[in-house]
Nucleic acid binder design. Structure first.
Lengths: 239, 239
DNA sequence: CGTTGCTTTGAACTAGCTCAAGACCTGTGG
DNA sequence: CCACAGGTCTTGAGCTAGTTCAAAGCAACG
């Protein structure tokens, strides 16, 4: 649960007793192979998943066969925390890479939240930041061209990984395929490939399989028109 | 506050004492002229707005001058409820038409929520449904063509208004301009006009200024591939 | 060392854009 | 009661970002 504590401390402050509550949260760790649906659209959910290792993503399929990826989730995220008050999935939670996940029962989580209104507020805040990211992404999907969107995705990933200490300088691991990236950006896999080449050609990023390296951070930010205020970190320097 | 009670009862159940708490919530009513920014991007917010009459919408502008509308809010909605735990706006809340709005201080709201964990859960749930709508909208923006998106927008509006009793049979008032609709759908105003004509031509809807009439509900649903499960109404028949 | 999944390239096509102009409302002041 | 102004809607026409289809290259893995 240390990774969860680290995550929550990026968006709020925890007292020692709140940390102790979280450390005492019962959970069961499972391993999900790449591509596994961890929580399926339509399923009733009585627990939520804390990502411990690897990446998960959330996606929804439409009747016409299209797939939209909403968000990518590294260690520390609880991508389906919303189930605590929705109870039924309205999209899929999928393992982007092989990953380790801790399952937390809502009964146990509610017991902990009942002990601290402040902790409840931080968890609620986490859900609200999730929604804020969706809004930012809607802005990109609706108003920005493919290259801007892609640059923005890499900016957001980098900032979120860095605040959690999951980066390696300007490098980080991102196990999504180009098809995945395209489905997040709302563009075809072919165009994803060409757009990636543009960013490479401008010397902004380098990608080698699942390793991403940012070659020109300020250039990438400018290309993406990235402003991380929507991530609502307590320490606004982070964005 | 009766309209708020009506709204919350569509997504959860309230006890008599919870209703009494809500009825006792202090608030100040203001009138906002069409186009007024009720809460501005970047502003620190210590209160939230309950729409009483008319429509509001949330939007964000990007550096390139693009505007994305995220959602439209009829009476009963608290479009900026997220400020309760975010504290700073990351987008604009704007009056779509002239409207009446009740301002609720977070101090007062927190005092009420402190009295009932169940009411807290329902408010939290409201924020989560907001996020679920964003996800559905991302799916549309990323994967559906203009006509499908527009049909979906009208389906969602109709269902949300109907559950609140704000419809008039298959007719309802929707005061957005075609430019507004275009900025919600992520298409140009010109294409909005042509797409609207397609829906009219297929006999699905009729629009006269701000009055919308659904001429063929099942046809419109089918055209939009609409499934309202993401709205998470307690009474799943509503969607 | 072949299979499988992922990436890259070419080329024809199309949904939606931009620009530009005209039509149509509705409120306002003379 | 008219005229004008400003916002909104509608239409035409050329253009472009991104699509689809199809095939080839490449890397990892059993």
């Amino acid at each position: 649960m240390n990774i969860l504590i680290r995550k929550l401390q990026t968006i709020g402050s925890l007292t020692e007793s709140e940390k102790a509550f979280l450390l005492g949260l019962p959970s069961r760790v499972i391993v999900a192979k790449k591509g596994t649906v961890i929580a399926a659209d339509g399923a009733v959910a009585s627990r939520s998943c804390l990502v411990l290792e690897g990446f998960a993503h959330r996606e929804k399929l439409n009747a016409a066969g299209g797939r939209q990826i909403f968000s990518f989730h590294p260690a520390g995220d609880i991508p389906d925390l919303q189930n605590l008050h929705l109870g039924r999935m309205d999209h899929n939670l999928v393992a982007t890479s092989d990953c380790r996940v801790a399952l937390i029962d809502h009964r146990d989580l509610n017991a902990v939240l009942g002990q601290s209104a402040s902790l409840t507020g931080i968890m609620w805040r986490d859900c609200l930041i999730d929604a804020a990211s969706f809004r930012q992404w809607m802005l990109m999907l609706g108003q920005a061209d493919a290259e801007t969107r892609m640059a923005h995705l890499f900016c957001e990933l980098f900032v979120r990984l860095r605040v959690m200490g999951l980066n390696d300088g300007l490098r980080f691991n991102f196990p999504a395929t180009q098809t995945d990236i395209g489905d997040a950006l709302g563009i075809s896999a072919v165009h994803t490939n060409r757009t990636l080449q543009e960013l490479r050609g401008e010397g902004l990023i380098a990608v080698d399989r699942t390793e991403v390296e940012i070659l020109n951070w300020s250039g990438l930010r400018a290309r993406a028109m990235f402003d991380g205020a929507y991530l609502h970190y307590t320490d606004s320097e982070e964005a």
